[in-house]
Computed example of a mutant assay.
Amino acid sequence: MGVEELKERWPALFGVDEINAEFLRITTVPLQARFLASLDKHHNKLIEIIRKRGGTVREKTRDILKVLDQSLDVNLRRECLLKCLIVYLGENVDQLIKEYLVVQKDEAESELERCTMAVFVLREKDDLLQPPQEIGIVIEGVEVINELPSVLHACAILFGLIYALNLSYPTELKYTFESLQKVIMEVEPKKMSRRVCSLSVKL
């Protein structure tokens, strides 16, 4: 059964409280509380590891780290940290977080309809320091939830939906989701790929 049909039949399943409850039932781990607290716990060490890297990682995280250094907003700092983590793992931030200006809404809708899984963000201006107008989640081209308070909350809820709907991690983000599962959420952490294990050891 596709996500669109699931949403029509069981709309309550796509509510934030229900996703949190379902994740807790499946894993015995509190979803949002663990996701945010664990990322905060690893924040300083992760940033230190990322800043030490040269080459492509340094190049691709330069602007993100600049925003992180300028902002006092905890949600924006968490968002920057997650973006840096994705780059550090050798994956592409744009595969998970799709950012658009409000004036590009039609283009955004057309692109998101072809999207397997993503968090989308609509901004008034091309300025990360300004709060977004809209944050939501798309799965199988269907907007399943919106009006989320931050990009990090959206990523946590997407992670929970993957469990609640029994979906596979997207191949192009397999290391990102593996690190979220095993390092950040500490769900079934015993067996890790070499890349994620290396990160875990450094932390």
Rank of each mutant, 00 (worst) to 15 (best):
A21F: 14
A33D: 14
T28F: 06
R51W: 07
N20E: 15
L31Q: 01
A33K: 15
N44F: 11
G54S: 13
N44I: 09
L39M: 12
K52S: 12
E48W: 10
L24F: 11
L24Y: 11
D40A: 13
R34T: 15
A37M: 13
I47D: 07
N20L: 09
R34A: 04
A21R: 14
Q32D: 10
S38V: 01
D40G: 11
R51G: 03
R34D: 00
V29R: 05
S38I: 01
H43G: 06
T27K: 02
K45T: 11
V29F: 05
N20V: 10
I19H: 04
L31S: 00
L36F: 10
L24N: 06
F35G: 00
T27C: 05
K45I: 08
R53Y: 02
T27P: 02
K52F: 04
F23S: 00
G55W: 02
L36M: 07
S38G: 04
L36W: 02
I50T: 07
G55V: 04
G55P: 08
L39G: 01
K41L: 13
H43Y: 15
A21E: 09
N44S: 15
A37K: 13
I19N: 03
R51H: 08
I50Y: 09
K52C: 09
K41Y: 15
H43R: 14
T27D: 03
T28Y: 05
L36Y: 03
Q32L: 12
N44K: 15
E22Q: 14
A33E: 15
D40K: 12
P30T: 01
G55M: 05
